[in-house]
């Protein structure tokens, strides 16, 4: 004979389940209705003001896809030598010979979503692999906790890949402060006290760039810098041994890893550059002819 208590309990559970399903269903229904109302209320699905941006984006994506596919079909290309990147290994080697650490910092201006920071992480991975092999200390101060966490993982993995995970010191990769000149003072202090033999200033830098580069110069460190901040580039060129100018930093990932897909995207960059140059020439001719009144070619280029 079935247990009445258990049976009623089962019915209650079943009813509860139905109630929950019913309530959940009603909730989902309400959400869908709200969504439908929002969609119905939406008048402009496409903002026509952004058409030029969309066209440019589609062209850019198309070029990257084309370059990647072309690469997959065996078309290889060679990247020119980038002095700053070629000097990375020598800089780590020098620090090892002098028994002094390497200091790497990504600057104060970026956060992890910034392409420059991501590009800097690629170089960090390469430098960390070398410091692991040569058993040289790598010090990495940063102003952003997320960058710190990612850098720790990047360096740990580089050490593991090199087969020297026991040499990895997570304490050397530290968050110092989010304040610009607090960060500059902290890194300056580290440079003065630790006296690294090689300094890598790769990332987004602002006014702290010259403070760091000049302090590095004063202790005689070999310095490799790279940034996307055009104004800071001039400071780096004066105070550092090697400077990666803007896009060279973005190309570093492909240059150092020789990864086919990444190399293809670097080639895509060059194709886009040619497209832009052609557009600039055509637009300049059109604008000049229109301005002289010889022919009216309109202002289609001024989107």
């Amino acid at each position: 004979m079935p247990d009445n208590k258990a049976l009623s309990g089962g019915l209650v559970k079943k009813n509860n389940f139905l109630l929950i399903v019913g309530a959940g269903g009603a909730h989902v229904g309400r959400m869908l209705l709200n969504l439908a109302l929002i969609i119905a209320a939406s008048t402009a699905w496409f903002d026509m003001d952004r058409l030029p941006t969309l066209i440019a984006s589609v062209i850019a994506i198309g070029i990257v896809a084309y370059a990647v596919l072309r690469h997959k079909h065996g078309r290889k290309f060679r990247m020119r030598e980038i002095a700053g990147l070629s000097a990375l290994d020598n800089a780590v080697g020098r620090a090892t010979e002098m028994a002094r650490p390497v200091l790497y910092t990504p600057g104060w201006g970026g956060d992890i979503q910034r392409p420059t920071t991501i590009a800097s992480m690629n170089v960090l991975s390469h430098v960390a692999a070398r410091t692991a092999q040569y058993n040289c200390d790598l010090v990495y101060p940063t102003h952003d906790p997320v960058i710190m966490a990612v850098a720790q993982e990047v360096v740990r993995e580089a050490y593991a890949d090199a087969g020297y995970v026991e040499r990895f010191k997570s304490d050397n990769i530290t968050y110092v402060t989010s304040s610009q000149f607090g960060y500059a003072a902290a890194v300056d202090g580290m440079i003065s006290r630790v006296k690294p033999a090689s300094i890598f200033l790769l990332g987004t830098f602002e006014a702290e760039s010259l403070i760091l580069a000049e302090t590095g110069n004063s202790i005689g460190a070999i310095q490799i810098a790279g940034t996307d901040s055009t104004i800071q580039l001039s400071f780096f060129i004066v105070a550092c041994d090697y400077t990666l100018i803007g896009e060279e930093l973005f190309a570093a990932s492909g240059y150092l890893s020789q990864d086919e897909s990444i190399l293809a995207s670097v080639q895509a960059q060059d194709i886009m550059k040619v497209v832009i140059a052609v557009f600039l020439v055509v637009a300049t001719i059109a604008a000049t002819l229109t301005a002289t009144g010889l022919v009216d070619l309109g202002e289609w280029w001024m989107f």
């Binding site: 803007g246 896009e247 995207s265």
Partner: peptide
């Protein structure tokens, strides 16, 4: 150049 580098990255 930087803009294009950012786009591809």
């Amino acid at each position: 150049g930087i803009g294009l580098g950012s786009i591809t990255t």
